[in-house]
Design a binder for these strands. Sequence first.
DNA 1: CTCTATTGAATTGTGCACAATTTAATTATA
DNA 2: TATAATTAAATTGTGCACAATTCAATAGAG
Lengths: 145, 145
Amino acid sequence: MNNTKYDALKLENQICFPLYACSREIVKRYKPFLEEIDLTYTQYITMMVMWEKKCVNVKELGESLYLDSGTLTPLLKKLEAKGFLTRKRSDQDERNLIVTITEEGEKMKEKAVDIPFKMAGCTNLTEEEGMMLYRILYKILGNDL
Amino acid sequence: MNNTKYDALKLENQICFPLYACSREIVKRYKPFLEEIDLTYTQYITMMVMWEKKCVNVKELGESLYLDSGTLTPLLKKLEAKGFLTRKRSDQDERNLIVTITEEGEKMKEKAVDIPFKMAGCTNLTEEEGMMLYRILYKILGNDL
DNA sequence: CTCTATTGAATTGTGCACAATTTAATTATA
DNA sequence: TATAATTAAATTGTGCACAATTCAATAGAG
């Protein structure tokens, strides 16, 4: 029993710190696989949205990824330069930038399709732990305090 | 039942994505509290180590925080400029840089001490969920695959 | 004791994140 | 319908992260 009012300031008593460390750690484990298809992690999750939706504006993309235009604008320009998507203003409302996946972007999906399975071996969680983690993380994300 | 081999590439089926989003989300919730004491989140967890250890070299600090010298060197220079710590090469082994907390850095602790309690209200997890999350995250971090 | 290998920080360069501001387009209102 | 308010992206500036390289100091092998 050596509790002090400072215990709450110890690194080992934080919940945010392992979250932050873990996030970076897993992104690091993705890196070798993502390098093979010339994507960074953020570009990869962006492509995931594109593979599903084919066509979105920056705002929708930002809501899906919890990212803003300050992050997305330069990132989308890079993905456009790589040929995976196109960027074009909407005719109906020129404030909106429409991002559309290209043929080449679609082809990428074939090269990406085994990454999730390769990554599955990179964590030592049981299926139950994985589901629990998933549920708790989305509970936090859903909490708009 | 519309399962395809592409389901594993959907954003909603990722475990890493909510981890990444959640980590950033919580750091964002810290920001208003940390601004009051003029620290960024990374500077804050660095100070946590300093409050506990008083004196460490960059390597030890990096092991505690899962960060390397590329991140820590500029960060420590900023904390030194703010007067919270000093940086000095070891006499025994000049390769080592000894980081030591200052009187002023110690005083900061008083101003930081209620941040964990303020943050506690910022997540909607039960105590059990918090403990579960903590356990699972450290299980991943401990896994040196 | 000298040469080589290793170690610990610092440096360099790239890519996010994000707050804050700006710009242009659209909508709402007096 | 002018004007004000709002909206969507882009821009600007700061601060990480991190791979890769460099540099200086020390340890180890012959």
